[in-house]
């Protein structure tokens, strides 16, 4: 793109160049050149960032590797992968195994490594009209919700959480949930949980968001079902393919991915949340 802009004789190129340089200087935090080799851009999800995990993870990594500075771009899983695809990130850390596999098969990323998982829980009104509380597993709870046409709030944003939800519907025998009882917000986990709370509806929510938000809710929903392996939410890390994107910080990306899977990184992940909530938010499970 830069080459095209620099081609001679185009009067329009001048304002575009000015705009680009403004954007570059705005993104670079005052540093020349925007992406110096010491910056690692991680495309990850809002739910991961909202959990607060990065706040303990990144300082520890930067202490171990003082040459690198990590910048997290927290977006939806879909957009995070898209950023990797467009070479706008050095490494992605998301939680949608199938989309991640495809990302690697399409050669947008080098290799996928499992890092940790967290759990989803099914929350809903205490009255529990569908009886999710007594369901043997998550997919049964989902099929009861659909049968009783009880209000359900979906993120509907193609996020990892939304994809996990869709799998549960299919497993529960509901191919495409629809009707006035099923509402799709297209918003983040926090907003969606708040909407479920306000409307006393069922919702699939990750444990981290639930624990950090439950005290600020109006008491409209409680946890009804948890612990089913179907509710485990696997995170993977994938460095962006430097053969497709020569400009990426390949070395930094590899260092970050390796460190996450290292005993040190895994240890920090396993401890996060113990102090504040009395339980870990993430379970580390990288292959050693």
């Amino acid at each position: 793109m830069k080459k095209r802009v620099l081609s001679r004789g185009s009067a329009a190129a001048v304002p575009i160049l000015v705009l680009l340089s403004i954007l570059a200087s705005g993104c670079g935090d005052g540093q020349a050149g925007g992406n110096s080799t010491s910056d690692i851009i991680v495309a990850s999800t809002t739910s991961t960032k909202d959990s607060g995990l990065f706040d303990v993870l990144l300082p520890a990594f930067e202490q171990a590797y003082p040459d690198y500075r990590v910048k997290v771009n927290a977006v939806g899983t879909g957009e995070a992968l898209k950023l990797g695809e467009k070479c706008d990130a050095d490494v992605v850390l998301v939680h949608s195994p199938e989309a991640e596999e495809k990302f690697v098969t399409d050669e947008f990323g080098t290799e996928r490594r499992e890092i940790m998982y967290n759990e989803f829980v099914i929350a809903g009104a205490g009255a529990d009209p569908a009886g999710a509380d007594t369901a043997p597993d998550a997919s049964t709870a989902f099929s009861r919700i659909a049968q009783t046409r009880s209000g359900f709030i979906s993120r509907g944003d193609e996020s990892g959480t939304h994809k996990a939800e869709k799998k549960l519907w299919v497993k529960g025998g509901v191919l495409t949930p629809s009707g006035v009882w099923y509402r799709s917000t297209g918003q983040g986990m926090g907003e969606t949980l708040r909407i479920a709370d306000e409307t006393r509806s069922y919702v699939l929510v990750d444990l981290g968001t639930w624990l950090s938000m439950k005290d600020s809710l109006s008491g409209g929903v409680i946890v009804l079902l948890e612990g089913d392996p179907d509710l485990f939410n696997q995170y993977g890390v994938i460095p962006v393919n430097p053969e497709r994107c020569p400009a990426v910080n390949a070395r930094g990306a590899a260092a970050f991915a390796d460190w996450l899977a290292s005993p040190e990184g895994q240890n920090i992940i396993g401890e996060y949340g113990q102090e504040q909530y009395g339980r870990a938010l993430f379970t580390p499970n990288a292959a050693q």
């Binding site: 992968l81 950023l83 944003d157 193609e158 996020s159 509402r183 799709s184 917000t185 297209g186 918003q187």
Partner: peptide, 19 residues
């Protein structure tokens, strides 16, 4: 909400989040 309270700007935001 899809089909209920979705307007242009909220849809744009949602779609961009999805990539």
């Amino acid at each position: 909400f899809k089909g209920e309270t979705q307007v242009m700007t909220t849809t744009i935001l949602e779609e961009v989040r999805k990539g």
